[in-house]
Amino acid sequence: MTLVDDARFRQVLGRYPTGVSVITSREPDGTPVSMVVGTFTAVSLQPPLVGFLPDHGSTSWPRIRATGRFAVSVLAADQQDVCRMIVAKHPGRFDLLEWADSPSGCPLLVGAAAWVDCVIESVQAAGDHDVVLGRVLDLDAGPTSSGPLVFLGGAYAEATPTL
């Protein structure tokens, strides 16, 4: 068995674009909590399930997990600054961002390409990450005309469909 170097793993898999999404929830005292992920995906139609893979080193994931619910804001290409603010854990970021509550009370970022509201269905450890499945309660496409924000080769890009 060959061990794969971390840098090579990132370099090779960096050729595959990943969507940029923000996972949010609200703690019992009302405090919004958020994290950026590049691993959000549809999982099942029946029942409607989505998934994401938070790193075990995340400080936000345990707080989100404890709430039992989360919302996903699929960022639009023009929301790079929003992404950077959340990744940098900018203090008071929710005072600076435009957001609204999902039907379950989780923050949704205004201007996102899409949003999905979920309850946590299951969590399974997988290496240095967890595999989180969420049962979809509600979802909708955003009003934006730009494509979704993606990360490719170490840089942000816009995904645009070819017709």
Rank of each mutant, 00 (worst) to 15 (best):
G14W: 08
G14A: 08
G14V: 09
R15Q: 15
R15L: 14
Y16M: 13
Y16N: 04
P17W: 04
P17V: 10
T18P: 03
G19K: 05
G19Y: 08
G19Q: 09
T24H: 01
T24W: 02
T24P: 01
S25A: 15
R26I: 00
R26S: 08
R26Y: 03
E27V: 03
D29C: 13
D29T: 08
G30F: 14
T31C: 11
T31Y: 13
P32F: 09
V33W: 01
V33H: 05
S34V: 00
V36D: 07
V36Y: 03
V37I: 15
G38F: 02
G38N: 13
G38D: 09
G38K: 13
T39D: 11
T39K: 10
F40T: 12
F40I: 09
V43H: 00
S44W: 01
L45M: 13
Q46H: 14
Q46R: 13
P47S: 05
P48G: 02
P48W: 10
V50T: 12
V50W: 01
G51N: 13
L53M: 15
P54A: 13
P54I: 14
D55L: 12
D55F: 12
G57H: 08
S58D: 00
S58M: 00
S58Q: 00
T59P: 00
S60C: 02
S60I: 03
W61L: 04
R63F: 02
R63E: 05
I64W: 02
A66N: 06
T67H: 05
T67Q: 06
G68R: 01
G68I: 04
R69Q: 11
R69D: 11
R69A: 11
R69F: 04
R69P: 02
F70Q: 11
A71W: 04
V72H: 05
V72C: 14
S73L: 06
S73Y: 04
L75F: 08
A76F: 10
A76C: 11
A76N: 07
A77Y: 12
D78P: 04
D78M: 09
Q79P: 08
Q79L: 13
V82F: 09
R84I: 09
M85C: 13
M85I: 06
M85D: 15
I86D: 09
I86W: 06
V87L: 09
P91K: 10
G92L: 06
R93T: 07
D95L: 11
L96A: 14
L97M: 04
E98V: 00
W99L: 00
A100G: 01
A100D: 01
S102A: 14
S102E: 04
P103D: 06
S104P: 01
S104F: 00
G105T: 07
C106H: 07
C106L: 06
P107N: 07
P107K: 08
P107M: 07
P107Y: 05
L108E: 08
L109K: 00
L109M: 06
V110Y: 00
V110R: 05
G111A: 03
A112M: 03
A113D: 14
W115Y: 07
